[in-house]
Design a protein around this nucleic acid. Structure first.
Lengths: 106, 106
DNA sequence: TTGACATGATACCATTTGGTATCGCACGGT
DNA sequence: ACCGTGCGATACCAAATGGTATCATGTCAA
């Protein structure tokens, strides 16, 4: 129940943010590039990106006047960590997954 | 992006609801029993339970005038299913987990 | 330098959300 | 039969959320 964990769960609760994560999975994108894929203003998209950043699911770096948003797989760890509390229902395989991710050290 | 999936993510976004799930993991509980563990009214707890039910994470059955709330592991499946889109970052182990859960047929 | 443009920062708005208070009802124990 | 109580339903509230509009700023290019 770390604040980190809460921020990650909150970030994943919105379908737009989950879609953004799917996009960023394969490639880095600027705010404007992300916004092109949605029917909303850049300001709204930037808000979502801020929430994703707060949740540790993406990192943002400045490149001149642009902000490059990058997916951060490590941000998923707190979520999977919480889910692992339900291992008993799933034959302990989730715990193995979590450990594997942590070992990757992404 | 099924409505089922969205409801599950939304249900997991609140820390109180996640705590409730943790409690129900080991034992069924009535609304009042759940409420005893929180500093809020039964009405508020019941609202959370309704959200959890909408998300398919618990099932509710009537027993006289009481409602027995039971954890439903199958409700996690849409969440893990979505997370599996990020397999490439985690050495494909999440997909294996998801398949294992679906085979369990819980 | 000057203009174009991506972003940041505010201010503002409608809706949703988490919560309380209150009422009524159905059920169970005595 | 009756009373207590577990629950559902409703009304209501403050705060958070998702969104827009607008303006300021920094940076790239000509």
């Amino acid at each position: 129940m770390t604040p980190q964990s809460q921020a990650a769960f909150r970030a994943l609760a919105d379908p737009t943010r989950r879609d953004i994560l799917m996009m960023l999975r394969g490639q880095e994108m600027t705010i404007a590039e992300v916004a092109e894929n949605f029917d909303m203003t850049r300001a709204a998209v930037k808000k979502h990106l801020t929430v994703l950043s707060d949740g540790g699911l993406i990192t943002v770096r400045a490149a001149g006047r642009e902000r490059i948003n990058t997916f951060d797989p490590g941000g998923m760890a707190p979520v999977l960590d919480w889910l692992s509390a339900f291992d008993a229902f799933w034959d302990d395989r989730l715990a193995a997954l979590r450990n594997a991710i942590e070992e990757d050290g992404t």
